[in-house]
Design a protein around this nucleic acid. Sequence first.
DNA 1: ATTATCTATAGATCTATAGATAATGC
DNA 2: ATTATCTATAGATCTATAGATAATGC
Lengths: 204, 204
Amino acid sequence: MRDRQREETRRRLYLAALDVFRRDGVQGCRIDDIAQKAEVSRAAFYFHFPTKEHVLLDFLAESEVPTAKLITELPASTTLEQLLTAAVESMAAVWQKEAALLVDAMTVSIRHTAVLDDREAGGPVRHLMAQRFKDLAARGELSSILAPDVLSDLFLSEIFVGLMAWGHAPHTPLETMLKATLQLFLQGAKPTAKAPVAAVVAKK
Amino acid sequence: MRDRQREETRRRLYLAALDVFRRDGVQGCRIDDIAQKAEVSRAAFYFHFPTKEHVLLDFLAESEVPTAKLITELPASTTLEQLLTAAVESMAAVWQKEAALLVDAMTVSIRHTAVLDDREAGGPVRHLMAQRFKDLAARGELSSILAPDVLSDLFLSEIFVGLMAWGHAPHTPLETMLKATLQLFLQGAKPTAKAPVAAVVAKK
DNA sequence: ATTATCTATAGATCTATAGATAATGC
DNA sequence: ATTATCTATAGATCTATAGATAATGC
């Protein structure tokens, strides 16, 4: 009973905050507006969330669920192209609906992933993807020019850059944009061209 | 005389702010600390800068000067590889010294480039690079999978991701990290593989 | 005398916390 | 009776602005 009430209040604050974020941005909005919309006191917000940004972290966690599920269910034999195509489609489905939150979500994500130390930070998608990349590298299906987890971060970042670029230029269909971004990464991350790569790495 | 005084105060606030940012981060620090360090009132800070973030925008502008100069001086015949190599080396020189400001600088940059509308936003490097990419695309030296300015944004973002990844894993030399990132992009952005690309774009 | 730079300060907003209320567990 | 949830509120910090000071231009 108490738990249910607590969760209901928290949920109301969560949804109210996202609404206000979509309109005014995380930095631009007042916590009072969120609290009023959720019909609780401002202090109740602080009881449930340490800062405004933590609401977005919750949102990021929630937004990752379908993509994480999808990646988990892919068979071990999945190729790089299949993996990335599936991930991109799933992420696009989420963010196409939430373009207004994209920039705030991404900057909060960068900040928290950077502040918390190293590779522990980030959500399940980052970890699942890094693991897949490691497996693919071991099977020789991935360029060894960079460590698999770095490549994986690079890929996820590119997708977000593609999403943001789409947010600016919505005349391009999102799917076109993301598939092209994916294609660019795939061609770059192919395990071919070993000679020039080795030369560059060896230089230092 | 008055102008000189003004610039001196502004400069003191600027340097004090960066110092405080390096220690506490943009979000974590108090404007009072900056003002005290610069030996002026807190309101003097607001006279010179609308927000703490605007100090970082100034810093970003300053940090771009050498790279922008370099790009401007490259001959029209410069290849994609030469352009990117030069840009990466110049950016690496700046950020290697300012790793502590990297994450804050990047998030501020994203936020402001995203908030101000479209392609007008951003510093000279973004525009010079976009122009060069356009020229290279016209000469057929660049994949036409995405618009040249989008490709250019993608490249710059990748460099920053590489820089941040290096900030987390400083056992890898920065130069190795960035050259590898560059190589990955170069291979992806080569104007080869036209068949699969066309198919993907045509799909939607 | 006018104007630019900066300070002092009022009001807005945030953050921390003491205490009220109502559910829980004994 | 104890504890979790939430409110009221005090203190910290931010932001806006009225006014002081000193340089500038006439």
